[in-house]
Amino acid sequence: MTKRKQHRFKGGKIIDVEEYHDGRYGAPGCKREKKKNPTKEQIQKINAWNKARRCRWKLLEYFFPGDCFATWTYEVKNRPPDMAGALKDFQKAMRSVRKEYKKRGQELFWIRNIERGTKGAWHIHLIVNEIGETASILQRAWTKGGTWSIEIRNSKYYDEDFSKISSYMTKDEHTTDKRSDGSQAKPRISESNYNSSRNMPLPEPKVDKLVRWKAEPKPKKGYYISQIHEGINPVTGYKYRRYTMIRLKEGDSG
């Protein structure tokens, strides 16, 4: 059985689509790869993908390209002894940020990842909704080291459907980069802690049954497809596909 799951964000301006085969049923017209028990590495990749996916959905629903992408760094003398200490530092700084947002009558949305590098350095990557003076608010709130900030759209991790930045924001000790020769480099993170503010519920998806698996997806009228990702689910052995449709602006042609 082929299914299509649609997540609608920002009132339907963005539609995230997942098409996949239910592993409990056959898949007419689609050859199935040999089913295998997932390895430990595959399970780690699936867990990482699910975490990045939920992060991306929150970005699509609550954030915009002009919002703030920041990093809080530590001076060596202020480095925390452990993750519990880093969490306390983050919470203290965010109380200050939240207070400033409240003064201005603004709601605060945030996503963050606290990371400790393999050489012992700590830093916090942070995405916050922009209210006009967010960079200065973040800088004043953080007293443990430096503050670096940029608009999401101006960072090297920006793409239209937030895939790159969601993967970046959910890095952990299993994340590796590819070298120029194609080999995998060693992880640069020894420990991480990902979280987001609680005021960001996600809309329930709409699920439809499809008659067959189409070779290529077609966008709805008035939309265009920004990104397509395809692969094989290692658990079911069937193909899956994800793509994002974005509503055309007035005056744009299809």
Rank of each mutant, 00 (worst) to 15 (best):
A135L: 03
D172G: 11
N233P: 06
Y62P: 06
H21K: 09
R79K: 13
T244Y: 14
N199S: 14
K239N: 05
M1S: 15
D177F: 13
P219Q: 03
G254T: 02
P28K: 11
F9S: 04
Y25K: 12
L87M: 03
W110C: 05
P81M: 07
Q44M: 08
V211F: 06
K40W: 04
Y20C: 03
E19R: 15
I111F: 11
K156C: 15
Y62S: 00
D161S: 13
K119Y: 06
K220L: 09
Y62I: 06
G231A: 05
A27P: 05
E18H: 09
S253I: 04
A141L: 07
A48S: 07
K239V: 12
V76L: 02
Q42A: 08
N193E: 06
A48C: 00
N199V: 14
R8P: 00
S96W: 07
E230I: 05
N199G: 14
D16C: 15
R56H: 07
S190G: 06
R140M: 03
E160G: 10
G11F: 00
T176F: 09
A135P: 08
N50P: 13
Y238C: 00
F63W: 05
Q42P: 05
C55E: 09
L138A: 09
Q227K: 12
E19A: 07
I225V: 13
Y74A: 00
G231Q: 04
R212S: 07
Y20M: 00
D67K: 10
D172A: 14
E216S: 03
K156H: 15
Q184T: 06
W72H: 12
V207Q: 11
K220T: 03
M200K: 15
K144D: 00
A93Q: 08
S183I: 09
Q91L: 10
S190T: 13
A84D: 04
S149D: 11
K214A: 06
A70L: 15
L60A: 09
K13C: 02
S197C: 13
R98P: 07
R241Y: 10
E160P: 14
S136M: 01
N129P: 10
I46Y: 00
Y238T: 05
S192N: 04
V97A: 01
W110E: 03
Y20N: 05
L59D: 02
Y74E: 09
I165E: 08
V128M: 08
P234A: 07
G26D: 01
K239T: 03
K218Y: 01
Y224R: 12
F109Q: 06
K31C: 01
R112T: 10
C55M: 02
G231S: 01
K88F: 11
R179Q: 14
G237R: 01
M200W: 12
R32W: 06
D16P: 08
D172L: 08
Y194P: 04
G254V: 10
H174I: 00
E41C: 00
E160Y: 10
Q227Y: 01
R153C: 14
A52E: 05
A27K: 15
E160L: 09
P234C: 02
L210I: 07
E230V: 09
D172M: 11
